[in-house]
């Protein structure tokens, strides 16, 4: 058995929606280079629908696959629906991730939320804080402690 599922390897080898959107309606960046994962998600919104989405990821195979899968799952979806995207759904769509890689799917969920939040703020759209749980930029504990 290999480390990753065929689905993960497919999304890793052929990432969907990779790249940047010029003048995006929302951008979210989560993670931290110190931990070894950063995800950046760009969205274009029209009539409350995510018309286009692109991502850039610095991270391992599962981080790249999780971001790719998350973009596929929210593309063409109304914002309200995209906000419902969970790390569990991303993991399931990838046919699972190794336990110590689950945080990659959490980052994908957080990246989507961060991009939507940015869109709301840019457009002065009031939103409920509770929809965006505190985004932990680095959930990891390092031996030397703290951030740089």
């Amino acid at each position: 058995m290999s480390l990753y599922s065929e689905k993960v390897m497919d999304h890793f080898r052929n990432p969907r929606n990779v790249g940047v959107i010029e003048n995006p309606d929302g951008v979210g960046e989560v993670g931290n280079a110190k931990c070894g994962d950063i995800m950046k998600m760009y969205i274009k919104v029209k009539d409350g629908v995510i018309e286009d989405v692109k991502f850039e990821t610095f991270g391992c195979g599962s981080a790249i696959a999780s971001s790719s899968m998350a973009t596929e799952m929210i593309k063409g979806k109304p914002i309200a629906e995209a906000l419902q995207l969970t790390n569990k759904a991303v993991t399931e769509a990838l046919d699972g991730l190794p336990a110590y890689k689950l945080h990659c799917s959490v980052l994908a969920e957080q990246a989507v939320q961060a991009a939507i939040r940015d869109y709301y703020e840019k457009n002065h759209i009031p939103y409920d804080e509770a929809m965006f749980p505190a985004c932990s930029h680095c959930a990891h504990e390092h031996e030397d402690g703290g951030e740089e």
């Binding site: 990432p15 990779v18 790249g19 940047v20 960046e29 280079a33 950063i38 995800m39 950046k40 991502f55 850039e56 990821t57 610095f58 790249i64």
Partner: peptide
């Protein structure tokens, strides 16, 4: 192979950008 792969990974790395 190695420089090609480094370039590929950098092409979609937000850190590299």
């Amino acid at each position: 192979a190695v420089p090609a792969v480094v370039e590929k990974v950098r092409s979609f790395s937000p850190v590299w950008r």
